[in-house]
Write a protein that binds this DNA or RNA. Structure first.
Lengths: 239, 239
DNA sequence: GCCCTATGTGGCAAAATGTTAAATCTTGTA
DNA sequence: TACAAGATTTAACATTTTGCCACATAGGGC
């Protein structure tokens, strides 16, 4: 199963509110980065990956909608807006700008968590516990180009039904690429997944795993069509 | 981008409200099936595919949460709940049961539509506007002078059908020229696309890419007929 | 025609990526 | 503990892509 936690970016200028969110969500098993201004948020957005962004629309000296568009321009990161104003039109505008959900303050921490989880669920994150009592692991299997990646069973199945053996590291790399498909994933993120270690520009181990994976799943490893290298960024799974 | 319309199932016992939803969403370009009871909903769920279900929690003789779990058991169809009660706990329970969003009546039709679209967007349905992922427009195939530029596949095809290999930077330059055809595009704009770096008048890298592109696609690179240089402005693609 | 600027292009050098092979580490087992 | 098999990392080298310099050519104003 997935080893690491979903990583959130919280953009909220009020320090008290921000720390309340952070504490509650951290206790719920999520990892959090905090930003208090639009500028700070941009710095984090440029330097690390986030599985979801919680954004306060009422930042001082900042148009929250612009920030949404910037996030969408870079990647398809899910966004949950929180706002102090209860104007329905503002909600429509926020959602149409690309947000995934919109909460009006005040709200229960539980509702924030429930809505964040609902969005993450759609992005391939397992429900932490209990709630998926209906036992159908539809969210545990991803497919790409006819291949089936069975997360719970840790199995990779080819388009013709054969089970292809992959090592642990290879599987984790592939699973992360699949989860974020079609966005590219940085070598740094991929390495952090397979081994708790810092990444240096000279570290080629991810490239080796990619190379080995390609030999196993690409029709012609010389012309990769499934695992695409993105220069200066990392690797992506073609949709 | 998918071709046909998203198909919705609306489960709502109040006939007036139901027809209001149906009319509004149909006019917005969605196709709709209506169900007034849980039993009717089950029939439709068993016999046709839905891209999203709008479910009223307050059905008579029916526990809406059970219906949610049944839907989740069959498939991973997105669910948007609407409810007359404004109890926050009910929202949390609904979302944790597997719903993707939760609206409390009364609400604007526009907000329902915006939330439905936000969920569909996550499921891969394109918004009307030309969203971009990775800086390259995700929609469509452009053609110029017999050449085919396949944006999603990142492929360039010659008039006789051969695939011509182009590098990432070359492809992005060509894609932008194609998008703005036949208007000329400045070097500054083009450079901003391939690499977020400032442009100085001495920067010739765009010229190099143009030169390399011409060698690949022009009949006679000495007399360019496809990529036209516009003095003091930039480059344009001939229509 | 002359001069200044803009553009076209060949030729490296630097940086990033793909790949092979050897070294190192892990894990299961006797 | 020692061994063997497999997994992972390191090292080294090949290849691709990109940036930049230098020089040639062309345009336009005087």
């Amino acid at each position: 199963m997935k080893a690491s936690k979903p990583h959130l970016l919280i953009v909220e200028d009020d320090e008290v509110i921000r720390s309340v969110y952070t504490q509650y969500l951290t206790e719920a098993g999520l990892s959090v980065t905090e930003a208090s201004t639009g500028a700070e948020a941009r710095t984090y957005l440029a330097s690390e990956h986030h599985d979801l962004v919680i954004l306060d629309l009422g930042l001082p000296n900042e148009d929250g909608l612009d920030l949404i568009r910037e996030i969408r321009k870079r990647a398809n990161t899910p966004i949950v807006i929180v706002s102090g104003r209860s104007d329905p039109i503002e909600r429509v505008v926020g959602l149409e700008a690309g947000a995934d959900d919109f909460l009006v303050k005040p709200f229960l921490n539980r509702e924030l968590l429930a809505r964040v989880r609902a969005v993450l669920r759609r992005r391939g994150w397992e429900q932490p516990s209990g709630a998926t009592a209906n036992g159908v692991p539809t969210s545990g299997v991803t497919t790409f180009q006819g291949w089936r990646l069975d997360l719970p069973a840790r199995r990779l199945e080819s388009p013709i039904g054969d089970t292809v053996h992959v090592t642990t590291a290879e599987f984790q790399v592939l699973a992360e690429l699949a989860r974020r498909m079609p966005e590219p994933v940085s070598r740094r993120d991929l390495l952090a997944l397979v081994h708790q270690r810092e990444w240096s520009p000279a570290d080629r181990s991810i490239d080796i795993h990619i190379s080995n994976l390609r030999r196993k799943i690409e029709v012609d490893p010389k012309v990769p069509r499934i695992i695409i290298g993105v220069r200066n960024v990392g690797y992506a799974l073609a949709p």
